[in-house]
Design a protein around this nucleic acid. Structure first.
Ligand SMILES: NC(=O)c1ccc[n+]([C@@H]2O[C@H](COP(=O)([O-])OP(=O)(O)OC[C@H]3O[C@@H](n4cnc5c(N)ncnc54)[C@H](O)[C@@H]3O)[C@@H](O)[C@H]2O)c1
Ligand SMILES: NC(=O)c1ccc[n+]([C@@H]2O[C@H](COP(=O)([O-])OP(=O)(O)OC[C@H]3O[C@@H](n4cnc5c(N)ncnc54)[C@H](O)[C@@H]3O)[C@@H](O)[C@H]2O)c1
Lengths: 203, 203
DNA sequence: ATTTCCATGTGAATTCATTAACAAAGTTAA
DNA sequence: TTAACTTTGTTAATGAATTCACATGGAAAT
């Protein structure tokens, strides 16, 4: 089954909510309750879940831990994927703090910075190296994805190095549109754009 | 003219790109060139621009600075909107560093933290206060929007205080689904979900 | 037992978003 | 001047996403 970007986004969101519910001891959920969490409809939830092949039971709804497994089977890579982060400023550190062990298939294992005071340290199981070592570490550690949180002025050049080193996808926090071959998957995150959207829609 | 969330997101993205082009000295652009920047089509760009009423000229395309003005007239609030940020950890600091003066209509003017070592300082024109002062400052400074970057455990309670204090929209970075009245506009940003999406689509 | 609930799965209908297509009009070149 | 380009604005056509609506079947209640 092939699904759209939208559906994937919702599925990973459902999973996060379901994981939280499970740790709170909730074991079953109905489509309308899950819909409420994400301001969506029961029909939307049921259709999304239909995509991944999992089936709930009428009256009892969905078994949360089975549903989490089904979503994971569907959205997670079969082998683990290694990730690196470039730029250990405030943003990079916040990301590293946050990301340890949220998803066992996606591991941020290496960090890079040009500032020697930020290299050769370990944060949450992620080791930091000088940016000079970028290419060799990416190859040695079989890194496929990168998070970019360097200053704008550096972003394009670093992104090109990443691609040449074999990176397949980039989560980009530098507020610049990277010019890269279109077979590279790039997801841009710009806080200011998000805030502008909130400002437009709030009230 | 009433437009969808999608269109607003693209418009603010166009504006950001156009602003960058303008500072690089570019003054005109065609729909296909703008489309290339965002991996979209000329038809999509033209339709989006149609929504806001601006008209380009055949052969010459769009005048960048006029187009920026038109987008701004359309998406920006008429009066400036004041924003506060709660939680001055790594993430909060990164956001403040980044956000100064990107949009003159949206000003992050107050920050709050419970840690006294982070209060009564000024970062980029934004003053920080103890969280105890939240309600009074929001009222005095006419703050309407909030950015939430506190630990998960605190997020729901703080969000409720924000609503009671009159906040209309929240940009939420705590990885929790806030339970708030539906007339409050909430935009959630979760890095891990974004990374999961990249992992799914990259190659 | 039988009836009454409810919630699911899914095909059909609908709504919404994107793309195609083309007339209109400015520009350039001959 | 006229013809050939080029790019816009916009309507119509297509395509995608969401919602509706209902048959199905398990559980609880009578
Ligand atoms: N998208 C968003 O929502 C968002 C939010 C905040 C910040 N940002 C952006 O993220 C980037 C980082 O923000 P920050 O607050 O962490 O900045 P920062 O200045 O604190 O950190 C940048 C880090 O990158 C390192 N660096 C610089 N050049 C480098 C290079 N060539 N190779 C390797 N490392 C290099 C620096 O040593 C520093 O540690 C900035 O571009 C900022 O604008 C984006
Ligand atoms: N969504 C994302 O992409 C993303 C990325 C990184 C971090 N995060 C999340 O953002 C939050 C903050 O991350 P961080 O790295 O800055 O953490 P941090 O621990 O460095 O900072 C949290 C700050 O909040 C303050 N705080 C705690 N309780 C408070 C309260 N009741 N009132 C006011 N201030 C209070 C603390 O003093 C601290 O300064 C965390 O929940 C983290 O999980 C989200």
């Amino acid at each position: 089954m092939i699904v759209s970007e939208r559906v994937i986004q919702r599925l990973v969101l459902y999973r996060k909510i379901l994981q939280n519910l499970l740790t709170d001891g909730v074991t079953k959920i109905y489509s309308h309750a899950l819909g409420d969490f994400v301001d969506s409809t029961p029909a939307q939830v049921r259709r999304d879940i239909m995509n991944i092949g999992y089936k709930g039971t009428p009256v009892h709804g969905y078994d949360i831990s089975l549903l989490i497994s089904s979503i994971s089977d569907f959205v997670d890579p079969t082998q683990t994927r290694n990730v690196c982060i470039i730029g250990l400023g405030n943003l990079g550190k916040a990301i590293l703090d946050y990301c340890h062990a949220r998803n066992s298939k996606i591991n941020i294992i290496d960090a890079f910075d040009k500032d020697p005071s930020k290299t050769n340290i370990e944060i949450n199981g992620c080791k930091s190296y000088h940016i000079n070592e970028l290419e060799t570490k990416i190859e040695d550690d079989r890194i496929e994805l990168a998070i970019l949180s360097v200053p704008i002025s550096e972003a394009q050049a670093i992104a090109e190095r990443l691609i040449r080193a074999g990176i397949k996808g980039i989560l980009n926090y530098s507020p610049i549109e990277l010019r890269l071959p279109e077979y590279i998957y790039v997801e841009n995150r710009d806080m200011m754009l998000a805030l502008e959207k909130v400002a437009y829609f709030a009230k």
